[in-house]
């Protein structure tokens, strides 16, 4: 294991060593090792099928690895999954809410499963519902909540028993921006109180929020570091091309001298070049020459998606 993968602290909340898992002919996760320090927000980022859900389920102790070790707060999850359960919380992509029960009844049920004393549960539920903006919906059926609200209710249920390690599998997929903001506010608060958070996402913008990232591809971790260091390590520099016809611009710039990579991002094109200052003028001239029309070109800071694409090529884009 190299230094980047182990984080700064010597004390790990989560440590995995040589994890492998295969489903039939598909090697979902291959020889995966990483360690997460207490209080970190650690993100697994990668396209669908990169093995993110498989890792989460193995960490939660509901799926056995074919090979490898997992330790959560010193507990061997593979050998003794039952011992790890009280200290961890796992939220799958779709949290299992009972849609025919109310918000309060769902909370009651999950509280009972962890045998929380009534008073503790009540106080904690209030505080969490408040933070999630769900306090006024206590008596509504879970099935009648919006997607974002359901996901926040799932988080409330998952946090009732104050876990030390929180595992979130694509928690904000299909969640509206406002709910997403509430969601992240709760996660940041948790980190303050020393909870270790591991989450997976296919959203690159969300990846920027973690303290460290593991870029995943085909069941392997390709790079693992803080978002800032990952960006700094990206070879080349980035130019943003804003054009009336971004597709034509993308086509015109393909294969231009000094261009290392191109990424179409909605109405603009991210162009990775060997030297931003030198190439800016060249690209402008090329676009005019190819008849694409005038375009605004300026250097920008790379995002995680740019890093990912630089690393893996187009196949790595979500």
């Amino acid at each position: 294991m190299n230094r980047e993968m182990t984080g700064e602290s010597g004390e790990f909340a989560v440590r995995a060593e040589g994890l492998c898992r295969r489903f039939g002919a598909l090697q979902a996760v291959r020889d995966l090792s990483f360690a997460v320090a207490r209080g970190e927000i650690f993100g697994f980022v990668g396209p669908d099928g990169a093995g993110k859900t498989t890792i989460m389920r193995m960490l939660a102790g509901v799926l056995l690895p074919d090979k490898g070790e997992i330790f959560l707060e010193g507990i061997d999850v593979v050998a003794e999954p039952e011992r790890a359960k009280p200290i961890l919380s796992y939220m799958p992509q779709r949290f299992g809410l009972y849609e025919d029960l109310t918000v309060a009844e769902n909370i009651f049920f999950y509280g009972e499963l962890f045998e929380l004393p009534w008073r503790v549960r009540r106080a904690r539920a209030r505080q969490l519902l408040q933070a999630a903006g769900l306090l006024s919906f206590e008596r509504r059926l879970a099935g009648q909540l919006s997607g974002g609200m359901k996901q926040k209710l799932g988080l409330v249920c998952a946090l009732l028993h104050t876990p030390k390690v929180l595992l979130l599998d694509e928690p904000t997929t299909g969640v509206d921006p406002l709910s997403r903001r509430d969601f992240w506010a709760i996660l940041y608060n948790l980190r303050e109180s020393g909870v270790t958070i591991l989450f997976s996402t296919a959203y690159m913008d969300e990846a920027e929020r973690c303290s460290r990232l593991a870029l995943m591809h085909e069941g392997e971790i390709r790079l693992c570091d803080s978002p800032a260091r990952l960006k700094a390590a990206m070879p080349g520099a980035l130019l943003e091309v804003v054009s009336a016809d971004p597709r034509a611009a993308h086509k015109a710039l393909t294969g231009a001298p000094g261009v290392l990579g191109l990424l179409l991002m909605g109405d603009r094109v991210h162009v990775r070049v060997d030297n931003a200052l030198r190439r800016k003028g060249e690209l402008e001239a090329r676009l005019l020459g190819e008849g694409v029309g005038p375009a605004a070109i300026q250097p920008i800071e790379p995002g995680i998606e740019d890093v990912f694409v630089a690393l893996l090529g187009q196949e790595g884009a979500a």
């Binding site: 939660a60 102790g61 796992y90 009972y98 849609e99 045998e115």
Partner: peptide, 16 residues
Amino acid sequence: REREVGTLEQIMVSPI
């Protein structure tokens, strides 16, 4: 049904 809705997985990660 609990398996389909996903509540079964949720219950199995609890200490039940």
